[in-house]
């Protein structure tokens, strides 16, 4: 299906957030928000994705 990741349209096979995390090969320490709501890791498996879902995914970076 088609989803938006950090504003960019991408195709994915995953039907929930846990599957998307693994499909994209993301590092473990990331945070994911769906429709601007932070989804705790414990709820990744039970949070379904749907066509046109908007996700924000962040990771650690260097900073002061």
């Amino acid at each position: 299906m088609n989803i938006y990741l950090n504003g960019k349209a991408i195709e994915c096979r995953a039907s929930n957030i846990a599957q998307l995390h693994s499909e994209l090969g993301l590092p473990p320490m990331v945070a994911i928000a769906l429709e601007n709501k932070v989804i705790p890791k414990a709820e990744w498996e039970s949070t379904p994705l749907s066509e046109e879902s908007h996700l924000v995914i962040i990771r650690m970076a260097c900073g002061g």
Partner: peptide
Amino acid sequence: VTVAMKRIELDDKEDDML
């Protein structure tokens, strides 16, 4: 130590600072 956050990019291959 302080750390920042950034949006991931799928073609980002940089060393994981963690």
